[in-house]
Design a protein around this nucleic acid. Structure first.
Lengths: 227, 227
DNA sequence: CGAATAGTGTCTGTGAGACATTATCTT
DNA sequence: AAGATAATGTCTCACAGACACTATTCG
């Protein structure tokens, strides 16, 4: 029995932190269906070019947002007869995370694009609302026990800055002593030699960067940030 | 631009516990490619019939193993030009878990099928070895902080029996006091009224069942079984 | 010197694991 | 009664959070 034809795409949930809120990149669709509407960046898998769906997601990230070298992970696959008016479809969704500094440096195509706070989204085509909700849940969950939020923080950063990012993502305050202890155990940060940030009438803070080996993957912690 | 044709299938990693080991169901393929070889059960998505890939996985589970009502979750999606000799393919993989009792009761078609211990697998076609490795990693990971292993234990079961299942999956012993405390906190078990198992010259153990509401989903625990 | 934030030392409460004890069955 | 395993009580150690204190800058 030959396979029945269906539509296979990748969709990308690109998240960043702006104004203390998680924001998602939405692009104006330039073709049907839903031409002109805001939706997640995505596209067909190019079987002649891509070596995997992850490759397709990286290509979408590069072509539609001009970004590369980001943290990227497979989120989940969404499917069904009704989610795309063209017919039965499968979308492999990916989660990517970018910090404001990287966005300024290499994200020219989307710097002025449509970033929307994930907690106040308009109605979206396809099942993109559900895909984003899944992505946000994943990010909040992983923030409890991994270095993921560091990818949302422009490097170099101070520990208080990084803590503020964790707090923005988690939506609650974090004990600063525990936070420092945890970051020490995680052992995923390099202190910038001699690097300090003095931004006021107070003791300046040490600057850090993610260690090279964790730029594109996460460091997990044993027991988590909070009980 | 119309979509480029590709192959879309679902694959099912069905795990059970036999002889104290995680075992995976392999079936002899009845068609090309790899006809006659052992591989994961799977099949094309039937766009006329399935409402989602999960539906397709449930259908495969029913048609090829005669099983229903199991714990099932999406595992990940595997893709690329080389994993299937028919061409560029996408496989949405699902993880299902069954206990020996359910298998005896309704798993007639596969009771005598090919169950293989996940730690000593033969070479498998496609990328099924990698898919199984991902599934096992998921199960072991979730066993640290969820009720998943209870789906591997024929009901009704005693706490010592359930603990033995956790230990078999995790590959290490668990403190029995902590284990009981954790199961109490999880609050996912119902004591069978008056149910005891006396299997020797000693105090009989209380029998339990998974609470109805957790038969097809998991209960997660805060800090995990071990530090 | 005071204000402000960075960073550290130390206490305490909670929870996991170890050990000991009690409970309840068979032979 | 002896032996075996189930189930529970209690001690201890480790870790997360709270609080207090020191450090370093600017004005």
């Amino acid at each position: 029995m030959p396979p029945e034809p269906l539509i296979c795409t990748v969709d990308l949930v690109l998240l960043t932190l702006q104004a203390g809120q998680l924001q998602v990149l939405l692009l104006k669709r330039d073709r049907e269906p839903f031409a002109g509407a805001l939706a997640l960046p995505g596209g067909y898998v190019h079987t002649g070019e891509d070596q995997s769906c992850e490759d397709a997601a990286l290509r979408v990230l590069q072509d539609k947002a001009g970004l590369q070298g980001l943290y990227l992970e497979q989120l989940a696959t969404f499917s069904g007869p009704g989610r795309d008016p063209r017919g039965w479809s499968v979308s492999v969704a990916y989660l990517a995370v970018v910090d404001a500094g990287t966005l300024d440096a290499q994200g020219a195509p989307v710097r002025a694009a449509h970033w929307r706070p994930v907690d106040r989204l308009p109605a979206l085509p396809f099942d993109h609302g559900r895909i984003i909700a899944t992505a946000v849940e994943r990010v909040r969950g992983k923030s409890l026990y991994s270095s993921l939020p560091a990818h949302l923080c422009p490097a170099p950063f101070t520990l208080p800055e990084l803590q503020a990012v964790y707090e923005a993502v988690l939506g609650e305050t974090v004990n600063h002593v525990s936070f420092r202890r945890k970051m020490g155990e995680l052992d995923c940060l390099d202190a910038v030699p001699g690097g300090k940030r003095a931004d006021g009438a107070h003791r300046p803070a040490q600057l850090y960067r993610l260690k090279q080996e964790f730029r594109q993957r996460l460091r997990l912690v044993g027991r988590g940030l909070k009980a």
